[in-house]
Design a protein around this nucleic acid. Structure first.
Length: 121
RNA sequence: AAAAGCAGCCGGAUAAUCGCGCGGGGUAAAUUAUUAUCUUGUGAGGAAAGUCCGUGCAUCCAAGGACAGACCGCCGGAGAAACUCCGGGCAGCGCGAGCUGGCGGAUAGGACCACAGAAAAUAUACUGCUGACCACCUUAUAGGUAGGAGCGAUGGUGCAACGGUGAGUUAAGAGCUUCACCAGCGAUAUCGGAAGGUAUCGGCUAGGCAACCCCCGGUCGGAUGCAAGAUUGAAUCGGACGUUUGAGGUGUCCGCCAAGUCCAGAAAAAUCGCUUAAGCUUGAGAGCAAUCUCAAGAUUAGACAGAUGAUUAUCUAUUACAUUUAUUUUGUUUGCUACUUUAAGUAAUGAAACAAAAACGUAAAAAACAGAACACGGCUUAUGAGCUGCUUUUUUUU
RNA sequence: CUCCUCGUAGCUCAGACGGAUAGAGCGUUGGUCUCCGAAGCCAAAGGCCGUGGGUUCGACUCCCGCCGAGGAGG
């Protein structure tokens, strides 16, 4: 679980992020980016959401497992970047696909790192 | 020993690092709300699942009647209630221990019963049998049958044919208030708390289907679900209908209530509800049991894009392998030794040898089903490795 | 959370208030036609009616439990 300042919570916020339409894909994870931050909201931190659809698997245990793996790897990424983690986007959403079933932590961690590197480029 | 049946248990433990939710405490900022940070405590299940039943709880309508509707259906008990549980009966299945059952009514009525078959439900038809009776014919005290009359044995199809088998009676026949046994119905007696069992007697017979409609008996205030609902705050401030000539509301109608209702748009925050309970553990008592009563004790999930995670280490349950040197246990042999007694026997303890098992050793090693979302009682379904107790059948040994 | 509907041939659908061999179109395969193909014409194969039980003489149909798919309201 991320701390509260990083969490993306509102339904409207999710919809707004999808509408913006910036996305990229790597190894079973799709990353959606929201709007670029306006000048007056520079101090707000980037909010991050995770989505695992019911279509991927029927059982809650397997869906939660994927979500937890993604969340853990993002947490470690933020921690390793010396607590000054921030991007130019308002929000990020990670959407998992069926490829991630039965994958271990190392695999998920690699994909997240790749996606993050793309963000900064 | 093998194969079964029933009941029950278990659903890993400890530690480290980095994190998350919630509660308590401290520090800092601030008018408060609160925010940041430190510390400490704590954080999924036997099914948390499916949502198939039931209940609490909450709001709205009503507190009355009729109709409609839903549910239940052998008997007794338990329970808040239940498509719940326990005990008993009956029926079916199994060699048996046991298991299964949606188990009121077909004489209140309607519908349906394909193919086959004379006939599938009023046995008035068809196919047949009879010559005792009526009638008639003839070769006339006998023989016969256009008809009447009697009969339901004959018809072999079908899941099912208006009781079955055998005998008697008869012209032929038949439950024919003739007989024996069996099935079914009714009455009486008796056992039982009841369902029901048993015995005797009686009349003389009733197709199936209610998991089709239906009938009988019984139960039920209705609707909506914690996104119920309550409080605070914020935003929008347009339109339509309506206030006794009644918008709208309750399954329908009568009746009753009734001042707001609907559409569009906007805002979508916080707190409460929220976890101390028809609950859990232990002990005693009542009961065949379900369960109940009493006493004591503990109480530590509560999220809201939704915490319980990631990475390791050690230990066990368990599995596999190797080995009898040492340790323990069991069995067999020897008869050193001991005893009884005179050439044999006995083996409690000790001794030696052999075999088996356990532990030790080495390697692998928690992996199944699965994640709380208002709570509880059931049901159903999913599920790893095993363990315990009782019972049955078969085989072997004593 | 509360409800509803549907699973039939490779695909899209019929059928049905119980009665037996479950149909149609497209597709597939073979033949015919043509110099070759398409279209046309002729024929064939392909189904345990999602799954497990029950009621019944008999179940795709009636009843119950599961599995899967889709939808509605807040």
């Amino acid at each position: 679980m991320l701390t509260k300042e990083y969490r993306l919570k509102k339904r409207t916020a999710f919809n707004a992020t999808y509408k913006t339409g910036n996305s990229c894909y790597k190894g079973g994870i799709t990353l959606f980016c929201g709007k670029v931050k306006p000048a007056e909201r520079e101090h707000i931190k980037t909010k991050i959401g995770f989505v695992v659809s019911k279509k991927i698997h029927k059982r809650a245990v397997k869906r939660n497992r994927i979500k937890r793996l993604m969340r853990e790897s993002v947490r470690l990424f933020i921690k390793n970047s010396n607590e000054s983690f921030d991007t130019k986007y308002l929000s990020l959403i990670f959407v998992a696909s069926a490829k991630l079933l039965d994958k271990n932590f190392e695999f998920v961690n690699e994909q997240i790192k790749e996606l993050m590197r793309k963000l900064y480029d």
